[in-house]
C-alpha cells in the first residue's frame, strides 16, 4: 500500500520560505510526477516525503499513519537519486542487497530477491562488477534494483534520467513505465522535463515557487490549464501568448494558442506575417513567424509545408482551442 497525504506542509530554510503551506493526496498505485522549473521546490517536496528533510510545519501521512517524525529508513519508501548514489566500493550484487542487509533479512532470501531483481533489470551478467565499471544506463538500473528489492510502499525518483543521453533517456522512460505497470506500486517522480511528465504520469503536479499550480492528468493539463504558467509549461513547442488589442477582442487580458492550433495558409487568414525561421523535421514543420503588433508566433504544421525563410504566410487561430487569461494569469 502506498497512499501518501501531505497536510499544510511548509518548509523554510532559515528565512527563505521554500514551500508555503501545501496539501496533496497521492493515491495508492499512482504514478505521480512533480514537474516545474528548477528551483520550484519539487526536489525539496520529494525529500520531505522521503524524510531527508524535516518539515517546518504540517503533517505527512503514509497509509493513514502520521509519518512526519519517522526517520527515512522506517517510512518504507525507496528512492532513486539523480546521481544514482551507488556505493562505489560494493559490487552490484552488494549494492542491490544493501537495504536487505540493513533489514537483517536472511541470506537466502536476499539472494533470491537480488537474483529476481537482476533478471527484471537485465543485470544478471553484471552482478559482480563495481558501479565504476558500468555504463550510465546500467548504473541507473542498479539504482532501481536497489529500490525494488525492498518492495517499498512507494518509489521516489529524483530526476533519475537527467544524467543520461537522449536516446537512453527514452529507453529508460519506457522501462520505468513498464516497471510501474508490472509492480503497480505508487511512484513519485520529480523532473523538470514536461515531456517526461506527460509521457509517464497518471497525475501531474505542476509546481512553481513552492506552490502547486495545478494537479491533474496529462491531458487535463494540456486541454484546460488552470493558469498561464501551466499553459506555458505544458506542451511543446510552447503555447503562444498574445496580449493587447487582439486579446481584448476575446474579452481577455491575454490569450494563448498552441502552435498546433494555428491554421496556416499562403493566401488568407486572420493575421499576416513573415517567416523568420522554418524548421523542417519531416513529420512536422515548425515556423517562427513575425506578425505586426505581436510577439513572434510559433506555428506547427504536419508534414512538409514547403515554406521557407522570408515567405509571407497567413495564420488563423482555432477558436475552440483558444485559452483566455485575466490580468493575474488565471484562466477565464
Amino acid at each position: 500500500m502506498g497512499k501518501i497525504s501531505l497536510k499544510n506542509v511548509t518548509k523554510a530554510f532559515g528565512e527563505a520560505m521554500v514551500i508555503p503551506s501545501l496539501d496533496l493526496e497521492i493515491e495508492d498505485g499512482e504514478f505521480v510526477v512533480f514537474v516545474g522549473p528548477s528551483g520550484c521546490g519539487k526536489s525539496t517536496l520529494l525529500r520531505l516525503i522521503a524524510g531527508l528533510e524535516d518539515v517546518t510545519s504540517g503533517v505527512i501521512e503514509i497509509d493513514g499513519r502520521d509519518a512526519t517524525e519517522v526517520p527515512p529508513a522506517r517510512r518504507g519508501l525507496a528512492m532513486v537519486f539523480q546521481s544514482y548514489a551507488l556505493y562505489p566500493h560494493m559490487s552490484v550484487r552488494k549494492n542491490i542487497a544493501f537495504p536487505l542487509k540493513m533489514a537483517k533479512m536472511d541470506a537466502a532470501e536476499q539472494e533470491r530477491r537480488v537474483t529476481s531483481a537482476a533478471k527484471i533489470l537485465n543485470l544478471t551478467d553484471y552482478l559482480d562488477r563495481r558501479p565504476g565499471q558500468l555504463s550510465g544506463g546500467q548504473r541507473q538500473r542498479v539504482a532501481i534494483g536497489r529500490a525494488i528489492v525492498r518492495e517499498p510502499a512507494a518509489f521516489l525518483f529524483d530526476e533519475p534520467l537527467s544524467n543520461l543521453d537522449a536516446a537512453l533517456r527514452v529507453n529508460m522512460r519506457l522501462e520505468i513505465s513498464e516497471l510501474h505497470q508490472s509492480l503497480a506500486t505508487t511512484m513519485i517522480y520529480v523532473t523538470h522535463d514536461q515531456v517526461e511528465a506527460m509521457t509517464m504520469a497518471d497525475k501531474i503536479v505542476v509546481l512553481h515557487a513552492g506552490r502547486i499550480e495545478q494537479v491533474g492528468s496529462p491531458l487535463d493539463l494540456y486541454r484546460s490549464p488552470a493558469n498561464r504558467f501551466v499553459a506555458g509549461f505544458i506542451g511543446s513547442p510552447k503555447m503562444n501568448f498574445i496580449s493587447g488589442a487582439e486579446a481584448g477582442k476575446h474579452g481577455a487580458h491575454t490569450i494563448g494558442i498552441r502552435p498546433e492550433h494555428l491554421a496556416l495558409s499562403t493566401t488568407e487568414g486572420a493575421w499576416q506575417g513573415k517567416v523568420a525561421v522554418a524548421e523542417h523535421l519531416g513529420s512536422d514543420t515548425f515556423l517562427y513567424v513575425n506578425v505586426n503588433g505581436m510577439d513572434p508566433l510559433t506555428v506547427r504544421t504536419q508534414g512538409e509545408a514547403g515554406i521557407h525563410h522570408g515567405d509571407t504566410v497567413y495564420i488563423s487561430p482555432d477558436a475552440e482551442h483558444l485559452h483566455r487569461f485575466d490580468a493575474s494569469g488565471k484562466t477565464i
Binding site: 531527508l52 529508513a73 525507496a78 528512492m79 537519486f81 539523480q82 548514489a85 551507488l86 544493501f98 540493513m102
Partner: peptide, 10 residues
C-alpha cells in the same frame, strides 16, 4: 546523496 541513499536503505 550516497549517505542519504544509505539512510533510505534503512
Amino acid at each position: 546523496e550516497i549517505l542519504e541513499a544509505a539512510r533510505m536503505d534503512g
